[in-house]
């Protein structure tokens, strides 16, 4: 019971951290207008350049359960996690799951990883040299990756996870969001 309480408390703290960061200065790399964040139901209007060279706002994926995954090509656990994400996207994409990779690395290396691991979801690229600040703004002050924040179908922040999302975590935290009609 104590452990459960502790985990719940930690979850609440994380959500609070991410939420408060949203309410802060906005994304250095995005076009995030604070006023837009308050317009529900919507994902926060943060924009990043994709591996396709185009700018993409998270709002493009409104209505989906979004997993925004922070990773880098040099991070071995991230690469292992991505292999599972490819499987999740394949399996749950039709149910509304949308994984989005946010690469904290050179676009060339990210592209190579996307090709080699067959990433089947969009990969956005963070502005170089802003990784630490960016992660902090998304509620991860330690700067450790992999790190994933997730939103329900209404665009509401549902939680954040530091470290690799394993099957158990996915089942506990993400699957219920997919089952939720909204």
């Amino acid at each position: 019971m104590n452990r459960q309480k502790w985990v719940s408390l930690l979850g609440a703290v994380l959500i609070a951290a991410v939420s408060s960061s949203f309410a802060g200065s906005g994304s250095a790399t995005g076009s995030g207008a604070e006023s837009k964040e308050k317009q529900a139901p919507s994902l926060p209007d943060y924009s990043y350049k994709g591996l396709d060279g185009e700018m993409h706002s998270l709002t493009e994926w409104n209505g989906k359960v979004v997993l925004l995954n922070f990773w880098a090509s040099w991070c071995a656990p991230c690469l292992n996690e991505i292999k599972e994400f490819v499987r999740y996207q394949e399996q749950y994409g039709k149910q509304g799951l949308q994984i989005i990779g946010l690469g904290l690395d050179e676009a060339r290396k990210l592209k190579n990883v996307a090709r080699t691991l067959g990433i089947n979801y969009p990969v956005l690229v963070a502005e170089p040299n802003s990784n630490r600040k960016l992660l902090a703004k998304w509620g991860n002050s330690s700067g450790l990756i992999p790190y994933t924040v997730f939103f329900d179908k209404s665009g509401k922040l549902s939680g954040a996870h530091k470290g690799v999302i394993d099957d158990q975590t996915f089942e506990q935290k993400i699957l219920p969001l997919l089952e939720d009609p909204e």
Binding site: L79, N112, T116, L117
Partner: peptide, 13 residues
């Protein structure tokens, strides 16, 4: 090279 491999260019791979 296990970790580096995915981020290598096609020719290097």
């Amino acid at each position: 090279f296990a970790t580096q491999f995915p981020s290598m260019d096609r020719e290097d791979q």
